[in-house]
Nucleic acid binder design. Structure first.
Lengths: 156, 156
DNA sequence: CTCTCGCTGGTCATATTGCCCAGTGAATGC
DNA sequence: GCATTCACTGGGCAATATGACCAGCGAGAG
């Protein structure tokens, strides 16, 4: 899906101030309201903008510890492992990857001690052979997309 | 920050249908509008809900390849490396971790070939000693928080 | 027993939304 | 050269949501 420069500005503006409405955006961007509305519809139906769900901070929820676990899976157990991990609330994300491990997942926990419990629960499943965990200390670059959007919008 | 059961329902509802307004929410949840409004304010100022920014899908933007890179940093170069990586749009996320590597970052690229370019750019910096990359094949559990919210809201 | 707090259910003026329309300009196809 | 398509403009409409209030109520705390 192609991203226009105007599309880029819309997304950036929306990311910076999510509360602005379509009308306010049209004012700021200097285009007609209908245009902004049409662009937004296109971006959403095109899948570029998936939604506007609330961004919840696990830390504020009482889960300040984040970790990444690399899992090694027993042959053919992939499906079961996926289901098992999907059932654990502390598993925020799961990927299957190439490379040394077979899966990579993001975990959160209430404390370092609690992380042990989470890991036990994650690993306590026959299909998982081995797990190596890296605890996150700092997060210099929190999940972001704006620079990418700007690049995609600019070069186009 | 403590999460109420009602808070939980608000967040879940909001995550499922972000477009509903405060009024509609109050109707669905069977409480007064002012209550929902007050709860939302509290959740936001408490940091539990960070915002309502648009969720952009890098794949739809033309970056369908995701990878995780583990970086090994030369002693004392941490700050410089952070700045370097923050300047690369394809770096969506960066963490410093315990364990074998020193940093973990999430990358996206336009293709597997393009990933090489991105990695070169990431690694092409004196402070980085070594990098090992894992390409994401599948994403069985996309980034989610709802189960965690429900747990935090339920047990409380 | 009193105070405080959160929730209710209501009002109000204002702003925004979704939807419609005709007109314009540029690019496209015949 | 000419007609068509498309995106954008600028406007107007009714319906709705918003933010800001208010008094009253019940429960829990001191």
């Amino acid at each position: 899906m192609a991203i226009d420069h105007l599309d880029g500005r819309i997304i950036v503006l929306l990311a910076r101030e999510p509360r602005v409405g379509v009308l306010e955006m049209s004012r700021r961007l200097g285009v007609a309201r209908g245009t902004v509305q049409a662009r937004l519809d296109r971006l959403q139906s095109g899948g570029v903008i998936r939604g506007f769900g609330p961004e919840v901070d696990p830390a504020a929820l009482g889960y300040p510890v984040t970790a990444f676990a690399t899992l090694e899976i027993r042959q053919g157990q992939g499906t079961d492992v996926r289901a098992h991990l999907a059932a654990v609330p502390e598993v925020l994300e799961l990927h299957t990857t190439t490379g040394s491990g077979d899966m990579l997942c993001r975990l959160v926990a209430r404390s370092n001690a609690d992380l042990q419990r989470v890991i036990d629960r994650v690993v306590g499943f026959e299909g998982i052979v081995r797990a190596s965990t890296a605890i996150v200390m700092e997060n210099p670059v929190p999940l972001r997309v704006i620079p990418l959007v700007e690049q995609a919008a600019g070069e186009e």
